[in-house]
Structures are given as C-alpha cells and as structure tokens.
Write a protein that binds this DNA or RNA. Structure first.
Lengths: 201, 201, 201, 201
DNA sequence: TATGAATGAGACTTCATTCAT
DNA sequence: CATGAATGAAGTCTCATTCAT
C-alpha cells in the first residue's frame, strides 16, 4: 500500500471519528439544553475520553459551531431536494418541512438561538456562518418566488424564516406536552403561517 | 399599633424589597446575555449582599422565573391599554407594539427562550406560568378577532405569537448590526408578518 | 461601634487573611520548586478551600507576584536596617546578609529566576516591579559607594547583585548536600565575592 | 556481514537518532522558556512521532538532563580550546567567553537553574552530573591558577562560576530589552566581575 | 521499530449557595 | 434581618505517557 493511500486512509478515519463526535454531540444537544452539556458527557456518549474530544475540536465552542453549521447545511440540502422534487415546493409544504426538520434537530435550532441571542460569534465564525445562512436564505427566497409572491421577496423571506423559527421557540418544549404533541402542534402552526403567507387570491 | 398592622407593614416592606431586587435584575438581564449574570452582580446592582438575595428568592432560577413572569404581566397590561386606546388595536399595530416591547425587554424574551428551550420549568412553575400565558393569549386572540379573522382563532393567535417571537430570535443580535438597525429591521418584519395575517380582501 | 470602625475592622481582617495566604504560600514555595505548587496545596496549607484563595488573589500568577514583591520589600528593609546599624555596612557583610536572606527566602529567589528567565512579566507587573527593584539597587549602590568603590558604581552594583544571585542558583540545592551545608558554602562564597569586590589596597 | 557488525551498525544508527532528538530539543529549548516546550513540539521539530521520543528517552525529564549534560560538555570543550589557544586564557576573557556561551545557549543555562532550584535530580542523574561538573570546575580552576590567583583556588573557582551564572539570571530576559542589548550588558558585567577577580596589583 | 490516537489525571478557575456573626 | 466570607462541586482544557497497529 502506498504512503499516499495510507495517509488518505488516516484522513478518512479521522474524518469518520470527527463525524462520530459530531453526531453524538448533536444527539446529546437535542436531548436537553445544549448549554448544559459537558465535555465529559459528550466523551462518554462517543465512548472516548474527554481528552480525545480536543484532538478533534479546539474547544467546546468549536464543536458547538460545527454542530450548528452541520444543521444549516442539512437544512439547505433538504430544501434543495424538496425543490427539485416534483414540480416545486409549495410555501405550505416548505413551512412544514422546515418545522419538521427543526423538530428533529433541536440542537440546530438551539444553536441558532444561542448564537443569535448570545451574540458571541467570533469574527471568524461569523465569516463561516454568513455564506451558509445566505445560501439558506437564497433557497427560501426561491421558494417564495416560485409561490408567486411579489414585492420585496427578500424581506418576505426573512419574515417567513423568522416566523417559523418562532414556532419552535414558542412551543418546542411546552411544559407538559409530549414530543409527539409538540410535533403535531408546531406542524399545524407552520401550516397556518404558510397559509397566511401564500399568495392571496 | 396592632400586631396585624405591624405584620402587614412588614409584608409590605418585604414586598417592596423583593420588587427592588426584581427590577435591578431585569435591568441587568437586559444589558447582556442573562445566563451570564451572576448573583453577585445582581446583589451589587441592588445594593445588598449576595446572601440577601436568598432571603427573597429560593434560588437564582426562582428569580429568573419572576423576571419572566413580570415581563409577561407587563406585556398583558400593555396590550390591554392598546386595545382600550382609541377604537381598538389593528393587527399590524399589535405586531409592532409587541416586537417593540421585546426589543426593549430583551430579558423577557431571553427568559422565554431559556425556559421554553431548556425545558426546566418545574411543575409548580408551570402552574404559575399557565394562567399568565393564557391571559396573554386571550388578549392577543381578542385582537385577532377584532381584526375580523375567522376560523380557529386560537390557533391563529398561537401562530401570530410564535411568528413575532421568531422575528426576535432571528435578528435580535445579528452580528455587526447596531441596536437601532435591529430595531428597525425587526419592526419592519413585524409589519410584514402583520400584513400577511391581516384579513385578506 | 460605628460603621466606620466596623469597616476598618473588616479591612484589617481581610488584610490579615491575605497575609496568612501570602506567608503560607511563601513557606510552601520555599519548600520545593514553586512552579509545581498548586492552588489546592496552598489552600490546604492555609487551611481554607481553593475558592477562598481567589477571594484574595485574582489568579495564581497574582499570588506569585505578591510573594515576589514581598520578598523584594523585605530585602530592601533588611539592607536599610543594616546600613543604619552602626557605622555602615561593609561590602563583605552586605554580601553575607544578602545571601543569608536568599537562603531563608528561597521563594523570593526562585520567583526572581522565574520572572527573569520566563520573561512573562506583564506590563502592569513590570510597572510594579521596576520601582521596587530600583530601590533595592539604590540601596546596594549606597553600600558600594560607602565602601569607597569608584567608577561606574551603578554597573558595579549590578555586577555584585548578579554575582550574589549566582551563588544561589549554582548551589542552592546542590544534590546531596544538606541545607546547613549549603548555607555554609554559599555564605563562604559570598564572602569570597565580597572580598574581591572590596576596594583593593 | 557478521552479526556483530550488524549490531554495531544498529547501535550507531540509534545513537545518531538520539543525537537528532537531542539537538532538535536543544534548539527548541533555546527559543523559549524550556519548561513550556511539550513532547509534541519536540517530536514535530525532530520529524518523528511523540511515541518515538520515548524509544530514546525514558521521560521528558530524561531528555532535559541530556540537554543539560550536552551543554556542560560543550562548555568544557570550549574552555579547553580557549586554554590551548595562544598562550592561555585570561580571567577576563574567560568570563566573557563563558557568558557569551550562556547567551547563545540559554537552554543550558535554564536547565541549570531548573535542576539546581527544582532539586529534582535523581541519585542516578546526580551520579552522571558530578563528573561532568567536576571537569568543568577543573577547567575553570586551571584558568584561575594560570591567572596567578592564590589561596583556596577551588573556592575562588566556585565563586567565579557562581558570579557569572548570576549575571545571566539577573539580566537574561530583562523586560523591555532586546537580545542584543542584553548580550552587551551581560558581557560588560562579565568584564566587571572578571576585573574584580583578576589578581590585584 | 515507528506511529499517533487515545488516555486520564490533574491544573486553574467560577459561582450558586450556606451560615456564623 | 442582613452580611459577606467561605465553600466545594463542577467546568474546561492540557499534556506526558502508553499501546495497538
């Protein structure tokens, strides 16, 4: 086996392990307030020692960011697929797909809150974030336009995006409700919002 | 002076001091990410010692809750006033009033995120929260009905409430924007959302 | 008791406790390589919890610095006393007093090495250090002048100061020697150096 | 090829690799406070993996020691050369050669401080150290004697050695001075000390 | 023999909370 | 009732060292 191949293999393994950490973290973050997740917990969930986490991520914040970015990419891909699927993606369907995704990826959602509200994004992180968010917005805007909405479609896009995020913040963990109830309620709310945003007439 | 009166006086004083702590905390929480506010900071802001805080609140979480509840009450009162003011409150105006309030009471907003997302509300806290939220919802629903919207107005109320909260989560601290820019942007988004929710035709 | 007095009392107590930590640390630092002393050890030596250390010192480095400064002040006072004592302080006697002091205050000596060699003094610390060192040098220079030495007395002062420090670095912990043997040896070396520096003829 | 030769070859290779590590470490240690150099850094500088270091050195302390010993040997050779050079080495010249060496081999100097002050030399290490130091002292003593100094020349040797070491500890990293300034200052101090030690009259 | 991923003890530090005064 | 010094658990992170490949 050539050195090149060996090296490539190593890179692959490393990538795989990094992904392992990433998904374990995502799962863990989804289960509870992600800010209360500790390095030790993550390590335990991955099945490694705490020190190992630091071989793959410079800091816990770094890992937070990656979880967030991974979610944003997921979302973008999901929307891409939806749009290519059949003859386009109706506004209502988009709303439901988006909220369904947030339901199953609470960590993405929580991260968004965290970084948006905490305002702690470093300049470098902001630089990484911006193109990702822009692409997400572009995707949503395309759907808005396909729905025949006119006027300042960018602003409408922002409004729609915000509104759907709000569904989550308001009901994602409503005390005393089961996850399934929450899912049903948020999807229904997404539908209502989608309905209002759809071109009247 | 009778014992009763003395006792009442004491209760009053106690209430007054509790309020003092509450408002100092609200101010402090509004200034930065409330999760990073420490007991010592609050105590200093109030002008008492850390130990004193604990004579009025069982724990920091307890104080958090009270700040949150106070915000919800404020909001309800504000909407009450708006509705009684003139001949009613249009949907668009409500949206803007609500978002303007959130802009100036970030702590209320952050608390909402915190408790909703953290899912840490104790059963007792939930019991205290529910009537307050119900009243807030009742108020919004009244506005929705006054606006002539029909169908499941409760569901529409929830959708609207959610959507407006979302405006905040999405843009409240957008990196690189000034508070004034954010205020303008979120108010505009509130207007867009209000516009979509207003009865078509 | 007036509030003023109470406050003063508190200050005094605080100062006393700070001193307690300081001396415990000095003792501990003297016993072994001070860089290997941990906060927990210091806390244990003082008889408090680790957290308490941080009520009196911002960081471990802060405590390091204070130990160092305390040593430098001690030294200065000691030399002052020596000079006023009798009709002045001979060069040889100064050398022995200085080295004797270092023998009994290894932490001062180790700190000096640490900060000099590590080059990690922050600008603020340097600012605090400079006047203290200058006063120490002034004192030594006065002794040098009283001894009748001529020429660039400041340079001679530096040379003498350096040479005596060197006695310590070279023999302070010579492996296999008892503290008493080391004391004798270093004092003798100090005498030899003092002899060479004394005005010939 | 005989087994013996093969074995010898292997030994040679091993020795060569050990030297490689040693010089890489020396270079690295010279660049900054040697206590902050990590095994990984050394491994990277040598171009091997961290694990490999441990095939040649039992522990990091072991490597530290070797660096120190190598420095002491260097020094001895340097003085040997100086003495054979021309008609002998004056005391002043020796002082300057020695301090110049320390300036360019800060790691040697730092190691000396470390082991002397830390007092961590194991009995075995001490056994290795003693003959090396003795040879160094013999060399210096020879110079002292050549300079015509009389009396307890061994003690004078120690005093001189100490004094010169002290020049370094006191000024090696004086905050705010460039390496060149430090070099000049320490050389000048070495000259002053050498002057005082030179036979009067 | 060399590798380098993994380990895990242990360092510093923070802060909600307690309790003697 | 108020104080604030003290607590100590818990957090993040580092790094010498080991060991399966």
């Amino acid at each position: 086996m050539s050195a090149l191949t060996l090296h490539a293999l190593r890179e692959k393994e490393r990538e795989a392990r990094r992904d392992l950490i990433l998904s374990a973290a995502r799962k863990l973050f989804a289960e509870k307030d992600f800010r209360s997740v500790t390095v030790r917990e993550i390590a335990k969930a991955v099945g490694v020692s705490p020190g190992t986490i630091y071989r793959y991520y410079e800091s816990l914040d770094d890992l937070f960011l990656d979880v967030f970015f991974a979610g944003a990419l997921d979302m973008t891909e999901l929307l891409d697929k939806e749009r290519k699927n059949g003859e386009g993606c109706s506004l209502k369907r988009f709303c439901q797909v988006y909220v369904a995704y947030l339901n199953e990826n609470m960590s993405f959602y929580q991260m968004m809150s965290h970084f948006m509200l905490g305002g702690r994004l470093s300049p470098e992180a902001t630089e990484r974030l911006n193109p990702i968010m822009r692409e997400l917005m572009d995707n949503i805007e395309a759907i808005v336009e396909e729905a025949g909405l006119e006027g300042d479609t960018r602003m409408i896009t922002h409004a729609l995006f915000s509104a759907l995020n709000g569904v989550m913040i308001s009901y994602a963990r409503y005390p005393g409700r089961s996850l399934e109830e929450i899912r049903r309620h948020t999807l229904r709310l997404a539908g209502v919002i989608g309905g209002f945003f759809e071109k009247p007439g």
